[in-house]
Design a protein around this nucleic acid. Structure first.
Ligand SMILES: NC(=O)c1ccc[n+]([C@@H]2O[C@H](COP(=O)([O-])OP(=O)(O)OC[C@H]3O[C@@H](n4cnc5c(N)ncnc54)[C@H](O)[C@@H]3O)[C@@H](O)[C@H]2O)c1
Ligand SMILES: NC(=O)c1ccc[n+]([C@@H]2O[C@H](COP(=O)([O-])OP(=O)(O)OC[C@H]3O[C@@H](n4cnc5c(N)ncnc54)[C@H](O)[C@@H]3O)[C@@H](O)[C@H]2O)c1
Lengths: 216, 216
DNA sequence: CGGCTATGGATATTTTTTTATCAATACTGC
DNA sequence: GCAGTATTGATAAAAAAATATCCATAGCCG
C-alpha cells in the first residue's frame, strides 16, 4: 500500500505554483520565503520546508529562482507531463470543470466528456465532445486515458467508477458525495467541497466566541 | 487569534453526516464504527475519535444512535441553524454552487447572487435573483448576511472581498485562486480544488513506482 | 574592507494527529 | 445464566507536521 507523506505540503503546492507562475509572467526572477509566506498567510518556516520537500535549494541571503521553483514543484507533482483525463457527468459542476482553463497549468487535459442525457450527447461543451456513457469503458481504453473525473449524481458514481476501471483508468477524481470501491491498483481522490465549509463554520464560531468573551 | 484544532477531523465530518443522513432515511437507527470505517476507508479508531470529538457517546458493545450522531455533528459544526449567504460571480462555478441542493443539508442557504454581467443581472439562476455587484455591500448589510461566497475570476476577488467586508460579512468562502487580505475579525476559507488533484497525482506516481518495482 | 541585515539550510523541539492497547459493557447463541 | 464476541472509551505510544534555534552565506552601505 503506497503511503504518501507530507499531504498538507502537497495540498499547498498548487497555490505556490500559481503565484510563482504569475510572478514569472510579470518578470520576477527571484523570490524569498518571507514574501511567499505573507502571500500564503503562513509562517516563513513552513514555506521553506514545503519548498525544500520538492528538492529545490535556494541561495542563502538571496532567495529562490522563480523558474527553478516552478520546475521543481511541477516535477514533484508529476505535472511536467500533461496527463489526459475524461470527465463523466457534464452537468453544472462538470461543465464548470470542463470550462476551467486553470487545469492546464496543473498538467491536466480533459479530452472528452460522457453523459447519459440525450440532450447533451453529441454536442460539445467548452470544445469537448460529449459521448454517451455507454461508450465510456471502450473509448477510455482506446484513447489510453488513465484518469477519470466523476461529476455524476452520487447514486450513479459507483457504476461510473466501475466502468472507468474497466476502461483501464489508474486514478479517479471523485466529486460525488460517496465513497467508491475500486481495486487496489486504482487511486481515488474524493473532493469533499463541504469540508471547506465545515472548517469555515467552525472557525467562524470560534472567532465569534472569542470576540464575545473579549467584549465582556 | 482563534486557533481551531482537529482540522482533519472537521473536514471529515460532512462525509459522516451525509452517510448518516442516508442511513436515517432508510430507517437505520444504530450504527457501529467498523461499518462507518469501511465506508469511509478509514481505520475504525479514527472514526471513533472523530465522533468523540463532537461530544457524542456511544454504547459499548452496541454502537451509536444515528439520530444522536447527526445532531452532535451538526451542533459541533454550527450547522444546526441555517446560515444565509450571498454568492458573487454567477459564472459556471457559481451557477453550479447555486444549483447544488446539498448545501441545505449543511446549514447553508444562498439567498442571492451578484454579478457584473448585464446579461445575468435581473435574471434568476436556480431561483436566486442576480443583482448588480454595485449593490453588494448595501444589500448584504441590509439583509444581515454574514457569509459571502466568491466565484469571480482571481483578479476581481480582492475587490469583491473588500465589499463583502464592507457589507458586514464575517466569513468568506473563496473559490478564486488568490489569497485575500481581510481584517482580523473576518475569516476566509479558501477552497483550492487543485489541491486534491495534486494529492491524486502524487499518489498515482507513488503507486506506479511501487507496481513497477514489484514487477522487476 | 567591515559591519549590518536578510536569507536558506540543518538540526532540534513542540504540537498535533494517528494508531495501538486494554478494560468495561452489552448483545448472541446455547 | 454463561461463554464468546463485538463494541466503546480511556489511556498510552508512535508518527507526522508545525515551529524554533542557530549557523553559514550573500548582498548592501558606508
Ligand atoms: N454543484 C456543486 O456545486 C457540487 C458541489 C459538490 C459536489 N457536487 C457533486 O457533483 C455531482 C454533480 O453535481 P451537479 O450539480 O453537476 O449535478 P447535475 O445534475 O447538474 O449534473 C449531473 C450530470 O450527470 C449526468 N448523469 C447522470 N447519470 C449519469 C450516468 N450514469 N453517467 C453519466 N452521466 C450521468 C446528468 O445527465 C447530468 O448532466 C453530484 O454528485 C454532486 O453531489 C456538486
Ligand atoms: N470552474 C472551475 O472548475 C473552477 C475550479 C476552481 C476554481 N475556480 C475559480 O472560480 C472562479 C470562477 O470560475 P468560473 O469558471 O465560474 O468563471 P466564469 O468566467 O464562468 O465566471 C465568472 C463570473 O464572475 C462574473 N464577474 C466578473 N467580475 C466580477 C465582479 N467584479 N463582480 C462580480 N462578478 C464578476 C462574471 O460575469 C462571470 O459570471 C475563478 O476565480 C476560478 O479560478 C473555478
Amino acid at each position: 500500500m503506497s503511503k504518501v507523506q507530507k499531504l498538507p505540503t502537497i495540498r499547498r503546492l498548487p497555490t505556490y505554483l500559481h503565484k510563482l507562475n504569475e510572478m514569472r509572467k510579470s518578470g520576477i526572477e527571484i523570490v524569498a520565503t518571507p514574501e511567499l509566506a505573507r502571500y500564503m498567510h503562513l509562517e516563513a518556516i513552513v514555506v521553506r520546508k514545503d519548498l525544500a520537500s520538492t528538492g529545490v535549494t535556494g541561495q542563502p541571503g538571496v532567495g529562490y529562482k522563480v523558474a527553478e521553483l516552478i520546475d521543481a514543484i511541477r516535477a514533484f507533482l508529476s505535472w511536467d507531463n500533461t496527463s489526459e483525463a475524461v470527465l463523466v457527468g457534464a452537468g453544472s459542476l462538470g461543465s464548470a470543470i470542463l470550462g476551467y482553463e486553470g487545469f492546464e497549468e496543473y498538467g491536466l487535459r480533459i479530452i472528452a466528456a460522457f453523459d447519459t442525457d440525450p440532450a447533451k450527447i453529441g454536442r460539445t461543451i467548452h470544445d469537448r465532445e460529449v459521448f454517451p456513457v455507454s461508450r465510456l469503458a471502450e473509448l477510455t481504453r482506446r484513447m489510453r486515458i488513465h484518469m477519470g473525473i466523476i461529476c455524476v449524481p452520487a447514486e450513479y458514481a459507483q457504476k461510473v467508477a466501475d466502468e472507468l476501471v474497466e476502461g483501464g483508468v489508474w486514478g479517479i477524481w471523485n466529486f460525488a458525495n460517496v465513497s467508491l470501491k475500486v481495486p487496489d491498483n486504482v487511486v481515488v481522490q474524493r473532493e469533499v467541497i463541504a469540508g471547506g465549509l465545515a472548517v469555515l463554520s467552525v472557525k467562524l464560531t470560534a472567532l465569534r466566541r472569542e470576540l464575545n468573551s473579549e467584549s465582556e
